[in-house]
Amino acid sequence: MEKTHADAIAQAILEPDLRVQEEVRRKRAKKAANLLRKRRVAWIVLIGSAIGAAIAYSSGIHFSLGVIWGGVAGSAFGWIATHRAAA
């Protein structure tokens, strides 16, 4: 058997495995990027909740409403900001 023939057989055997490994690597990278995006949004939600709490405290409305609405606004801002950064 010639070397080129042996290389062709080895490549034919290994190529599907290489494609599968590449697909697995691509999926893992996508999951990691998505997790990073979710973590960034979570931090922005926490910051929004803190800002909402501070505004509620200073304006005299219920503290819990400030936390909730600040978190909602932070969530919306976070998803929009990370979506634009990802695109």
Results as ranks from 00 to 15, higher is better:
Ala54Pro: 00
Glu23Ile: 11
Glu2Trp: 01
Gly70Pro: 07
Arg39Gly: 11
Arg28Pro: 00
Asn34Ile: 09
Ala81Tyr: 14
Lys38Ala: 13
Ala87Lys: 15
Arg40Ser: 06
Leu18Phe: 05
Ala56Pro: 05
Gly52Glu: 07
Trp43Ser: 11
Ser49His: 01
Glu23Trp: 09
Asp17Ala: 15
Trp69Leu: 12
Gly52Pro: 05
Arg84His: 09
Ala56Tyr: 02
Ala87Thr: 10
Leu65Arg: 08
Ser64Tyr: 14
His83Gln: 06
Gly70Trp: 02
Trp69Gln: 03
Arg25Gly: 02
Ile80Gln: 08
Asn34Ala: 15
Ala73Asp: 08
Asn34Cys: 03
Tyr57Arg: 13
Ala50Gln: 07
Asp17Val: 15
Ala33Ser: 14
Phe63Trp: 11
Gly70Ser: 06
Val24Pro: 00
Ile9Arg: 08
Gly66Glu: 09
Ile44Tyr: 03
Gln21Phe: 06
Leu35Cys: 04
Arg84Ala: 05
Tyr57Gly: 10
Ala76Pro: 00
Leu36Met: 09
Gly60Pro: 08
Arg40Pro: 00
Arg19Ile: 04
Leu14Ser: 13
Ala85Ile: 01
Asp7Cys: 08
Ile51Asn: 01
Gly60Arg: 10
Gln21Gly: 13
Arg19Tyr: 12
Val20Asn: 05
Gln21His: 04
Ala6Thr: 12
Ile51Phe: 10
Glu15His: 06
Gln11Lys: 09
Trp79His: 09
Gly52Tyr: 02
Gly66Thr: 13
Lys30His: 04
Arg26Trp: 07
Ile44Thr: 08
Asn34Ser: 12
Trp69Ala: 03
Leu18Cys: 01
Arg40Thr: 07
Ile68Gly: 04
Leu14Lys: 14
Val67Ile: 15
Gly48Ser: 02
Ala53Tyr: 13
Pro16Tyr: 12
Ala56Trp: 02
Val20Pro: 00
His83Ala: 10
Gly60Leu: 07
Val45Arg: 02
Ile80Met: 12
Ala6Val: 14
Ala53Val: 06
Ile80Asp: 11
Val41Gln: 05
Glu22Tyr: 10
Trp43Glu: 07
Val41Phe: 08
